[in-house]
């Protein structure tokens, strides 16, 4: 048997079983719903947003949300200090955040899996070197390390994503390595090896699919971390640069109005919170559905 290529009906059964456990978790389903909504908002942002996210409306500076006195329905959530529509900026900001999450997780996942597989599979000094490097990265407070890296590379969204990915990737490497170590001497691997499977094939087709579950859970976790860290970097002026409508950067720009215009501070933060919360809910659901140990209890 090769676990990597289950026959179609088997795969469907696994998926159905997974969905059964996942959908039992009400929070996870809600989280998934919110997340899908955000994805739709991001994709169709130009169609949904009432205004351009960067258009400065000089006649309407710091207009409050529509339900407050002085607000208008033209700007549902009000405007910022240079007259940009906050709702539109938030909608376009969803693009930034989801984009950041996807890119960061892809980089961290790929890098971490390769490093982890290599370390776990080869062992010896290769393993020692790789894992010590991971230890070094983990020894620094993650945000600080990302901050210094962005300072080196220059402030900006791309560099912020690279820095966050590097900081998050040791978690994947460790997980993969641990899984490989556990699976390496299992019967099915031995069997594949005896059957003459090459190293690459062994690593990627035989062992990897069997350690996917924890990686998926870690991936969702990293997604939310990436969104949070990118916002934090933006807040510290080291992430996306104005006028890009990134939520953290919006918060940084809004700081000086904290006591005068609550809406410019409140909404971007709320957007970050809702996004991260939705992803974390999904992550919890995934973990429960994928982790057989918790499934039993």
């Amino acid at each position: 048997m090769t676990a990597a290529t289950p026959i179609p009906s088997e795969r469907r059964r696994i998926l159905r079983e997974f969905w059964f456990y996942f959908s039992e978790n009400r929070g996870a389903v809600i989280g998934l719903g919110v997340f899908l909504l955000l994805v739709l908002l991001a994709i169709f942002a130009p169609l949904i947003a009432p205004h351009s996210p960067t258009l400065q409306n000089r006649a309407a500076l710091l207009v409050p949300p529509f339900w407050q006195e002085g607000g208008s329905t033209t700007f549902l959530l009000g405007t910022d200090a240079v007259g940009r529509d906050i709702l539109s900026r938030l909608i376009f900001g969803a693009r930034q955040s989801l984009f950041i999450g996807c890119v960061v997780v892809s980089i961290a996942l790929t890098g971490g899996i390769i490093l982890g597989l290599v370390a776990g599979f080869f062992g010896g000094w290769v393993d020692a070197v790789i894992m010590r490097v991971m230890d070094v990265i983990l020894a620094f407070p993650s945000l600080l390390l990302a901050l210094v890296m962005v300072a080196i590379l220059g402030p900006g969204l791309t560099n912020a994503m690279i820095a966050i990915a590097i900081v998050l990737q040791p978690h994947f490497a460790r997980l993969t390595r641990a899984a490989v170590m556990a699976e390496k001497n299992r019967e099915y691997v031995m069997a594949a090896r005896v059957a003459g499977a090459g190293r690459l094939r062994l690593m990627f087709r035989t062992i990897l699919p069997n350690c996917l579950a924890p990686l998926i859970v870690q991936g969702t976790l990293s997604f939310s971390n990436a969104v949070l860290d990118a916002a934090a970097l933006g807040f510290l002026g080291m992430g996306a640069q104005p006028p890009i409508p990134e939520w953290g950067t919006m918060l940084a720009e809004a700081r000086e109005f904290i006591l005068r215009a609550w809406w410019v501070v409140t909404f971007p933060g709320l957007a970050i919170l809702v996004t991260v919360l939705a992803i974390n809910l999904v992550g919890d659901g995934l973990r429960d559905a994928l982790d057989p140990k918790l499934k039993r209890s």
């Binding site: 949070l228 916002a231 933060g269 970050i272 919360l277």
Partner: peptide, 14 residues
């Protein structure tokens, strides 16, 4: 879970 998802720089401002 809300606490875990909190952007603390925003939380502080609030």
């Amino acid at each position: 879970l809300v606490g875990y998802s909190m952007p603390i720089f925003w939380w502080g401002l609030l």
